[in-house]
Amino acid sequence: MLWQLDFWLMSLLIIAAVVALKVKDLLVSVGMLTGYSFLMALLFSELGAPDVALTEAALGAGLTGVLLVAALHRLERRSQD
């Protein structure tokens, strides 16, 4: 339980979340979201919850990104910016 590690993981987590929300390109947003999930899994395992960490790493960082990318390919986007 190093507080330095917690601090840096938490800061990266917030940066990833803000970038995922603010960025225009949806593919980049999905990438940041998977990165967020991976950092979350690292944080969970560091805080002593390996079961939750395994779920987050398998589902959040592994499969959700693929499903979101597959959904993105079905989208038709008409934006003026």
Partner: peptide, 24 residues
């Protein structure tokens, strides 16, 4: 992960997600 779900982290759900990830 599925077979050792009783005494180690993991279980049916996590193992199933990994199997689906390999197929995908």
């Amino acid at each position: 992960v599925i077979a050792h779900g009783h005494y180690s982290p993991g279980g049916g759900f996590q193992g199933g997600v990994m199997l689906a990830a390999s197929t995908v």
